[in-house]
Design a protein around this nucleic acid. Structure first.
Lengths: 199, 199
DNA sequence: AAAAAACTGGACTTGTGGGTCCATTTTCGC
DNA sequence: GCGAAAATGGACCCACAAGTCCAGTTTTTT
């Protein structure tokens, strides 16, 4: 069942509208009618494009949002090959979440763990994997330049940094403060720069 | 409206049963009937003790769970005054989340941000504040013993560590792996131990 | 022990939101 | 331009879960 040009546009409009409404209302209270009203479409259209109903739609939204998360960190994230790149990546991350304000569609969708569970999990898992991969690549790049000690395990460092960022964002969601995200980023990067102790 | 002995017991039974069902089903699909069935109570009882309905119940569950989170880290968390205490605290945290498996009632409740929103936020905010306070106290204690450089900002260090832990737990929820939590804890603690660079 | 207050059971109401159906219109390939 | 396939509108259904009510029982208080 190929999509016609118009069909593809409508489908896209629905996903974007749903994402937008979700930021406004949160997943919890997002209803299909909200989406329809927002996008000027009808139920039959929604179910035409998402036969799986709400779950399938939410999954599509999750994918849409996930792609944005990494995209917003470019081009820095893919080229962490100088300390100034790291710094400007750090600033971009903080900026992104400052703008987004205290609501994270992705985290919200995850909370909706229902039948969607496996699918949503997979999307987020993939996001983490890519993110961590980019960070690890950045660390290795700095190591090859002699700016980071070769003894440091790049994957492990990337894991810790990613955890810090995720936690910082999570805390931002509930407290509205970016202090934790900043602290995690700054200390994470400082950790990389500092030579290991000769333990 | 004072509670009789029996009433208090029933109320408590409801909260604990709800918490337990929530771990099983997630907030999303937790219904009041589930709670009633589980606790052998009736609707009128539930609304008798929680006039605010589901929201109020969820809030009570959140408080209940929040108190457990810090409790499970004791006594280490309140006495982070030696490296071995830090290590054993670290192990306890990892253990706790290993046991709990990939579901976090608190995070789940947060996802349910509705009218409860403000109340739930407050509960979690308070939890973070206490947690961070204990960590900061631990850092200061180590500084007073000369084990951590006095130049380090204790609150900032506590923030970064807390963010790492939260992120590690969050990632655990979706990936099922504890690697990130461990990496964040280990690097966070190592960061504290290592002398600052003479930048 | 008797009255008041707290507690309990369970039937009932109700709003809502996901999902279905089908008739009609538009788009697309040839 | 014509027929098939895709797209659309909107009325309809229905399950289900939150919340109400009140009659009856147990506990507390004096």
């Amino acid at each position: 069942m190929p999509l016609t040009r118009k069909g593809a546009a409508t489908r896209q409009r629905i996903v974007e509208g749903a994402a937008s409404e979700m930021r406004r209302l949160g997943v919890f209270s997002l209803t299909l009618d909200d989406v329809l009203r927002r996008t000027g479409t009808s139920k039959s259209q929604l179910f035409h494009y998402f036969p799986g109903g709400k779950d399938e739609l939410l999954l599509a939204v999750a994918r849409y949002e996930a792609s944005g998360v990494l995209g917003d960190q470019q081009p820095e994230l893919s080229a962490l090959n100088s300390w100034s790149a790291w710094r400007s990546w750090r600033d971009k991350v903080v900026e992104r979440y400052r703008d987004q304000g205290p609501n994270c569609p992705l985290n919200a969708v995850m909370g909706q763990l229902g039948p969607t569970s496996e699918g949503a999990r997979a999307v987020v898992r993939e996001l983490y994997a890519q993110w961590q991969g980019e960070l690890a690549a950045g660390i290795r790049s700095m190591q090859s330049q002699g700016e980071i000690e070769p003894a440091l395990d790049a994957e492990r460092g990337a894991r810790a940094l990613l955890a810090g960022v995720q936690g910082g964002v999570l805390i931002h969601l509930t407290t509205g403060s970016l202090e934790h995200l900043e602290a995690a980023l700054d200390q994470g990067i400082e950790f990389l720069r500092r030579p290991r102790a000769q333990a």
